[in-house]
Amino acid sequence: MPDTYFLNPSFVFKTPASPHYAAKLEGQSIDPKSLLTAISKERKNNTLIEGAGGVFVPITEDYLTIRGIQESNLGVVVVGSTELGTINHTLLTLEALTSRFIPVFGFYLVGPENPLQEDNATIIQKLGGVSFLGSTNFPEQKLSSEEFKTFALDQFDKNRNVIDVVINVDDES
């Protein structure tokens, strides 16, 4: 998809930490209202917005990502791991979202190929009550940034399940 489908980051930090902590360490502050304003401007543009970590990651010391998702009134595709532990993590995320009446379009698994991933996907779909949209397995060797970009362009969502469900969601209402 062209870059126009992706919302540019409102904040970028060097510190690999939750946004609230990275901002604090780097002398910046995050205003959730400005994030919501940027998101609201994209409402009709079929824009993909990637969160920073899971739904309970703090954006500020008193504002969680899930609150921003809820206040933006947008639907979600949950991205989980192919590995051990993903059933619990993904089902907890789905429960948190659906119990707040946040629409979930489905889930997608990403990670190394392993013997658990097929069962992980089946059980998450069955118990989570949302569609499995596919998976992407990483290559065994570590990739440079450029190699990863090429790999992702070629391998992520090859059947367009994620893209089509997100783009066509407004057409169904």
Rank of each mutant, 00 (worst) to 15 (best):
M1F: 06
M1E: 08
T4A: 15
Y5R: 15
N8F: 05
P9Q: 05
F11Q: 10
V12M: 11
V12S: 13
V12R: 12
A17L: 12
A17N: 11
Y21C: 05
A22V: 10
A22W: 09
A23D: 07
A23V: 15
L25C: 09
G27M: 03
G27V: 02
G27H: 05
Q28R: 13
S29E: 13
D31F: 11
P32N: 08
K33H: 10
S34F: 05
A38F: 03
A38G: 06
I39G: 08
I39V: 14
I39K: 05
R43S: 09
N45Q: 14
I49Y: 07
G51M: 04
G51F: 01
G51Y: 01
A52E: 03
G53H: 02
G53V: 01
P58Q: 09
I59E: 05
Y63W: 11
L64D: 03
L64K: 11
T65H: 06
R67L: 07
G68W: 03
G68D: 05
I69E: 06
S72H: 08
N73I: 06
G75H: 08
G75C: 10
V76N: 07
V77Y: 06
V79K: 11
S81W: 03
T82F: 07
G85P: 04
L91W: 00
L92R: 04
L97D: 02
L97T: 00
F101W: 06
F101S: 14
V104M: 01
F105V: 06
L109K: 13
L109E: 08
P115D: 09
L116P: 02
A121E: 00
G128M: 00
G128D: 00
G134K: 04
S135I: 04
T136D: 03
P139V: 07
E140R: 06
E147V: 05
E147Q: 15
F148P: 04
F151D: 05
A152M: 06
K158N: 04
N159R: 13
N161Q: 15
N161K: 15
I163D: 06
I163T: 13
V165W: 11
V166P: 03
D170N: 12
E172S: 14
S173Q: 10
